[in-house]
Write a protein that binds this DNA or RNA. Sequence first.
DNA 1: AAAAGGTTTAACTAAATGGTTGACAAATGT
DNA 2: ACATTTGTCAACCATTTAGTTAAACCTTTT
Lengths: 203, 203
Amino acid sequence: MNKRKTNTTEASILKAAKTIFLHKGMDGARMQEIADEAGINKSMLHYYFRSKELLFKAVFMEAFSTLAPQLNEILNADSSICDKIKGFSHNYITFVIAHPYLPNFILQEMNRNNEFVNDLISKNHFPSIKKFKLQVKEKVADGTLRPIKAEHLFINIMALNIFPFVASPLLKKVLDTSDTQFKNLIEERKTEVAEFIINAIKV
Amino acid sequence: MNKRKTNTTEASILKAAKTIFLHKGMDGARMQEIADEAGINKSMLHYYFRSKELLFKAVFMEAFSTLAPQLNEILNADSSICDKIKGFSHNYITFVIAHPYLPNFILQEMNRNNEFVNDLISKNHFPSIKKFKLQVKEKVADGTLRPIKAEHLFINIMALNIFPFVASPLLKKVLDTSDTQFKNLIEERKTEVAEFIINAIKV
DNA sequence: AAAAGGTTTAACTAAATGGTTGACAAATGT
DNA sequence: ACATTTGTCAACCATTTAGTTAAACCTTTT
């Protein structure tokens, strides 16, 4: 068994596939392009991953597995709602600055191929909103928070953090900002977003 | 000149192309599929639109032209900021419920082919944030609004209104809602979103 | 050092895909 | 009525693309 070579080849394929799939999506990606990116023969892709679809699933899985756990900071941590919002916004934006194509990739492919995400559910258990719902209900009941459904608050937190990355080309045009100016805006949002949300929900 | 036939054929091609492109994107769409959807021969697509790319541009243009003007309600109307936010949120969500694939299509294709959006700029003049910026600055200065940059407020308004449509498959999973339950949430957001934003910015 | 077994490559295949052509039909002008 | 233009289609073409194959190539084992 040639373990060393196997590992590095498989890893370099995955890395290349990630680059190409994240930039071009399933439909726009070409197996030859992935092979070129990895600097190997196209047959290797099939040798290690059998088909384009399986290679894509491996990439999607990996991408999803890096993003999904971050939701747990909001949904399942034990801290207060304010701390969760502050922590999540800061950490999430920091993370996505380092992986700017991830959110768009995942949202796009979930829209494209809804059914295959259902496979993903059973194995990789989705984060659940249950605990967060109880926490919000409680704080609304005791008057600490303005009345709001946990679902809406969750959607709002996601929207404010994720949307700027998904819509960056549009926003850059409307705001008429350069790349660096836009990066500065994003940087500001690490604190701006949490502040905005907390102002909206605190009594 | 066979004007009647020309008009109906061209229109049915555009309609079919819209359906296919909006669901599958440029890369995922097939010319044959568009022809089938329109119930005509594939040659007709080239007869009327020359190439896949030109047909796609026609569809994108039309899609963009229906969405862009809505931004003017926020950016260039003469009403108060509160009224703008209330009006826009309600109108926009109502509109997108009727055209659920539009926002995702536009964001996705702007991410995919950034340069060709630049062509679009010169012809179809992009909405500008100038006026809105002045209005926000003024209201922050006179103490009516909490301090916030117009850019962030604009991004937030866009995010809260658009994101739920773009991320619906993900949100449905995390929130564990049925399609009808999710539709109800969206319906609630027609007022919920504006309320949330106004709470966040009013002193 | 030779067999064995996993790894890699060039060449190949079959199907799909965007686009073209030429024949033909339908409408329009004279 | 007849010629000309315009619209439509089936068949075709060139290229691209995912996937296959068989031989070569290492690396380890014996």
